[in-house]
Design a binder for these strands. Structure first.
Length: 431
RNA sequence: GUGGAUGUAGCUCAGUUGGUUAGAGCACCAGGUUGUGGCCCUGGGGGUCGUGGGUUCGAGUCCCAUCUUCCACCCCA
């Protein structure tokens, strides 16, 4: 298949790619303001990193990883998420030896072998942050508020922030046992999936979408009933901080995240209207992950947001993304002599910092004007031998439909001035 | 991994009970006389009818397989 892309991937073409550039711009600014530094880790890692880090029993590891042997016989996996790699890089580069905490962010493609559907692709992009080295509940609140701030800056509305605490290695076994006792007594009311979960990961039963399981789990003990005093205090502190920040949330005692490394705070942001996959981001604390990866006992917290789903939501909510005009000016030529000089003039303008283009198809002047019109260029320079001899050019304002002659050496200045007047630009991404 | 729907020009679609050179609108390119756009008019280029088999004298139209996309399940972003 020479002319078809692999399933679940996409080409981001001109017209669409500007939206991504916009998102990235918002991300970089946001992260700078919150004191986060960008980190870029490899697209692929040793398979064991994800097996250990994400968790052997998770769906991601069991059925969704792009894993292959490289030519040296090493098992390699295209990253299915960002946290494990960031933790690896933190350890490998001994970032724990520097000032703490370490606040990092990343954007980039992730890979999961899933059946594609609305808002779900095999290669998709995430924006995520990770903070390593602090237990402070203020940081939990900051990370959550930062995610909400990101959505807010994009203009997204009607988001639901769900939050829960899944406890720590001290209190989780208690809950696990209580849950197993509870559900063993009503195994017959569970779906086949949940019967399996009963032994492996009873917490997940609370998260099941099956009506019968929800019904069966209605009065089940939840993490909040069994949190140890420390975890309970931490959770309450996070909620208090969120309230102080004015971040609205809903405590959802059934919220359980899909990755094994979460401890304490777990949260998820959902939105309606983009299909069955309504989660546009989530995260939580992972106090045991660094140690699990072979490092010191250092706590961490972070989030990851799906950028495709963010764009889907923006589209669904009718949000238009500002788009800078493509070209400042187009150079049209009227005859052979002018055409001969065109590239030199265009290049000179470019070196003065202007976005300029010209015709490369030997078009008639009329045809060049049509072309410039279709590009939506605000200004067109018309150059003919007549103008060349007198050292002037004709500068046409396309939206006004007026034109005038100006000396060639004032061209760049004139174009720049026109650009300032039309700084906002009419270009918007329609939905 | 499971189930359902879909696939004709770049895009949106038409295509009669299977029958001769597969159409439209939009888009693209070029013209509509002397150096000029957005409207209009004329002309032009462009289709392995998703792909591979099969039935038939003959298939875009029927059958099978396969792939893609979409929707849902599982799960997640």
């Amino acid at each position: 298949m020479l002319t078809t892309r692999p399933r679940g991937t996409s080409d981001i073409l001109p017209g669409e790619v500007e939206k991504w550039q916009y998102l990235e711009q918002v991300i970089h600014r946001l992260c700078r303001e919150y004191g986060y530094s960008e980190i870029r880790t490899p697209i692929f890692e040793h398979t064991e990193l994800f097996e250990r880090g994400v968790g052997e029993t998770t769906d991601i590891v069991q059925k969704e990883m792009y894993t292959f042997l490289d030519r040296g016989g090493r098992s390699i996996t295209l990253r299915p998420e960002g946290t494990a790699a960031v933790v690896r890089a933190y350890l490998e580069n001994k970032l724990y030896a520097g000032p703490q905490p370490v606040k990092l962010y990343y954007t980039g493609p992730m890979f999961r072998y899933d059946r594609p559907q609305a808002g779900r692709y095999r290669q998709f992009n995430q924006f995520g942050v990770e903070v390593l080295g602090s237990h402070d509940p203020a940081l939990d609140a900051e990370v959550i508020a930062m995610a909400m701030d990101f959505y807010g800056r994009l203009g997204l509305k009607n988001l639901n922030l769900l939050i829960n605490s899944v406890g720590c290695p001290r209190c989780r076994p208690v809950l696990r046992e209580k849950l197993q006792d509870f559900f063993r007594a009503r195994v017959d009311r569970l779906c086949s999936h949940c019967r399996g979960r009963l032994e492996r990961n009873p917490l997940r039963i609370l998260d099941c979408k099956e009506e019968r399981c929800r019904e069966a789990g209605k009065d089940a003990p939840t993490s909040l009933d069994y949190l140890c005093p420390d975890c309970e205090a931490h959770f309450q502190a996070v909620l208090k901080q969120l309230e102080k920040l004015g971040v609205a949330f809903t405590v959802d005692r059934s919220l359980v995240r899909g990755l094994d490394y979460y401890t304490n705070t777990a949260f998820e942001i959902t939105v309606q209207g983009i299909g069955a996959q309504n989660s546009i981001g989530g995260g939580g604390r992972y106090n045991g992950l660094v140690k699990e990866c072979g490092g010191p006992d250092i706590p961490g917290i972070g989030f990851a947001l799906g950028l495709e789903r963010v764009l889907l939501t923006m589209e669904q909510q009718g949000i238009v993304i500002p788009r800078p005009p493509k070209l400042d000016v187009f150079l049209a030529t009227a005859d052979e002599a002018a055409r001969d000089r065109a590239l030199v003039l265009v290049q000179r303008l470019r070196q003065e910092g202007l976005a300029v283009d010209m015709d490369y198809l030997g078009r008639s002047l009329k045809s060049q004007m049509k072309y410039a019109g279709k590009l939506g260029v605000g200004l067109v320079v018309i150059l003919g031998s007549d103008e060349l001899e007198r050292g002037v050019v004709t500068l046409r304002d396309m939206s006004a439909g007026s034109q005038r002659e100006i000396p060639l050496d004032r061209l760049a200045g004139e174009v720049r001035q026109h650009g300032l007047k039309h700084v906002s630009g009419e270009g918007k991404y329609g939905s």
